[in-house]
Design a binder for these strands. Sequence first.
DNA 1: TCGAATTTGTGCGTATGTATC
DNA 2: GGATACATACGCACAAATTCG
Lengths: 252, 252
Amino acid sequence: MPSPTYQRIADDLRRSIVDGVLAPGAKVPSRHELARQYDVSDRVAVEAVRLLVAEGFVEARSGSGSYVRQRPERQRLTRSWYTSRRGGSPFRADMAAAGIPGTWESSTERVPMTPAIAARLGAQPDAPAMRTVYTFLGGGRPVMLSVSWEPAELTSGTAIMFPEEGPHAGKGVVERMAVVGQRITHAEEIVTARPALASEAERLNMRPGGTVITIARTYRTDERAVETADIVLPAERYAVAYDVPVRQGSLT
Amino acid sequence: MPSPTYQRIADDLRRSIVDGVLAPGAKVPSRHELARQYDVSDRVAVEAVRLLVAEGFVEARSGSGSYVRQRPERQRLTRSWYTSRRGGSPFRADMAAAGIPGTWESSTERVPMTPAIAARLGAQPDAPAMRTVYTFLGGGRPVMLSVSWEPAELTSGTAIMFPEEGPHAGKGVVERMAVVGQRITHAEEIVTARPALASEAERLNMRPGGTVITIARTYRTDERAVETADIVLPAERYAVAYDVPVRQGSLT
DNA sequence: TCGAATTTGTGCGTATGTATC
DNA sequence: GGATACATACGCACAAATTCG
């Protein structure tokens, strides 16, 4: 069972691209040319190029041509405890490491928890929560989305009720929760990847169908979960770095 | 600028799927039916369904029909130090947690380091290394790939030269390196996601174009890097979990 | 500024092969 | 074996964007 023709053409072009024969920015043969070169109908050439576009190798500009995409360099997001020291935000520290000014916009609302969030926070479904929606900006452009949930029970009526208002704004969850006596000792982060939702792709300036990394983060004290967030970032532009301490098994 | 017809059809179907109107396993209208319903050519219906297939919402079975795919449940891979205790392998522990027997195949060769690997290990390019290629199996099926590199200088001529042979086979890097006096204290893991290479998709039983999570892991002592590995797993079937210790800033 | 050529995006109708039921 | 459905392919057409003389 031979590969279909459009696959074979796509394979040829893909190899040329990864081998550098077709450099980033270079023009991919137009569909007329491909059709001629491979002696096929123009529709087949269209399918081949369409595949490469879906894979992110090629960017097609209507009226102009199709060009080899330059993949952006991946920026590293450090997700370890020591970036949250010094009262700064981890996000700002990461951006600073890349020489980019990091800022964010947010809005907070009091809403009932969804069932999934309630499970993560160990609360009753529909328990009241403060939900804060963040858009993180690197150099003014949106680069990361996050939705954070805190049990209203913990913060209602305190100075940290609204995460991004008051004297503790922008200080990070660990310091804020300390204000109400919650001593966070660790965070759980569950990382995976999936296709971007249409709304996410639009907000993050991604091509539709691109993939995002998601991090489900839950901050905990030794007793309970005090905050959980869903973080979304474009997989093409980011990698997340963890430092995992290794304890030698002294009992073996 | 109205969306093209095939997009509109795909949008309708996608919404039906995520809303549950079309349940997993349900049959998607055939292209003839779609063409009739939307009063378009069958080619347009083909494009619409093809899009959903590429997005992973639909599985097309030739001769039978197109069906709503049920997304597999994500299995959690715990990547924290405490799973490596007790002399077992972290992978086997994770699989056991899911009730699946975990095994692996491997082969080891002495080869020079690639430039990228040498940089990760802090070695000269082309320095000799022991490279071990793993295929991890869950219930007999391949679920994870990994390529591990160790500086030959550390293990040459010792009992742990071949990671999967001898008395220390299958014990994990931490215990093996302890045998040659290397006390591993932490691991760095850099996580990201990208489209699967054709060879990876085939080995992992993924659909072509699917996305994989990659983990670049480096084990270190306090002095140096002693092992590094590239781990590849299907994003649809896995999530990786980290437990991040949080140190309260006592100096602030 | 205009207009022609090029290129992509989308669409139509048809045809053939093959897998499934 | 026949009906159905998907996969691939051909050839053509037109709109919109871009390029360039």
